[in-house]
């Protein structure tokens, strides 16, 4: 039974990668038509990605998701605003720190920054830059979920907050160092993937279900939107500080 599920998940992970592999293969064979260096390492790496993704999702479904979902519902119904907001912040922060895509991108950003002479060319400087970037993004997502939860409770229209956020981004950008802008804009999309989206969506929908007069279909959404907006502002702030 467990084995079957594992194989099914393995297949699902392969399906996630399949479109990328198909497009790359078509381009390699039909358009570029040159030998590819290091094929063995590429294949090995692809297998690692598939295996890693499988274990990762299997593990999430066994540990974090059931716990997190039960907890999101419990807090949404309990009615203690303080604990609910604390939980919302911690959930946003914790899930983002563990997000694999963000780990990879932060490292890449640190490499580019040290090659470009923005930070020192030592491992320590790179690590601290990458970690700083991730903590910044995680703080911003925690903050975003907190505001988003407040919005659902108070029933503020999503639209004004989003417009306010966009205006912030537009106003801050000219003051931010040019090197950080690309990473800042990208970090919005990077943060919200495998771990964050399911847990945060559950929190939102659970809250909207628990509060009278809220429609889970309409009010439950929008948390992810905040979580992809605030990192841009926070990361630009981080760029201005260092």
């Amino acid at each position: 039974m467990l084995k079957n599920r594992f194989i099914k998940q393995l297949f699902n992970s392969f399906l996630d990668l399949a479109p990328i592999l198909a497009v790359v293969l078509i381009f390699q064979v039909l358009i570029i038509g040159q030998p590819v260096p290091d094929v063995a390492s590429l294949i090995m790496g692809t297998l690692f990605v598939i295996l890693g993704l499988t274990l990762f999702i299997q593990g999430l479904e066994q540990s974090l998701f059931p716990l997190g979902e039960a907890m999101a519902y419990a807090f949404a119904r309990k009615g203690s605003l303080f604990w609910l907001l604390t939980f919302a912040f911690c959930l946003g922060f914790g899930t983002t720190v563990a997000e694999p895509a963000l780990i990879a991108i932060a490292e890449e950003a640190a490499n580019i920054a040290s090659k470009g002479g923005m930070i020192e060319q030592t491992n320590a400087a790179r690590d601290s830059y990458a970690l700083g970037l991730r903590i910044t993004v995680a703080l911003s997502v925690g903050f975003a979920i907190l505001i988003g939860v407040l919005r659902i409770i108070r029933g503020w229209p999503l639209f004004y907050l989003i417009i306010g956020g966009y205006c912030c981004v537009i106003i801050i950008t000219p003051f931010a160092p040019a090197e950080i802008i690309g990473i800042a804009y990208d970090s919005g999309g990077v943060t919200t993937s495998t771990i964050t989206v399911p847990l945060v969506t559950t929190l939102g929908v659970g809250l909207a279900t628990a509060i009278k007069g809220r429609n889970p279909m309409i009010d439950g959404f929008g948390l992810i939107a905040f979580a992809s907006l605030t990192p841009m502002i926070f990361v630009m702030g981080y760029g201005m500080l260092i």
Binding site: V49, L51, G52, F56, S63
Partner: peptide, 19 residues
């Protein structure tokens, strides 16, 4: 489950670097 997550992320990141 947590152990799976741990191994999964490690393999995934390693695979990213390689592929």
């Amino acid at each position: 489950g947590f152990l799976y997550v741990l191994l999964g992320i490690t393999f995934f990141l390693e695979g990213l670097e390689m592929a």
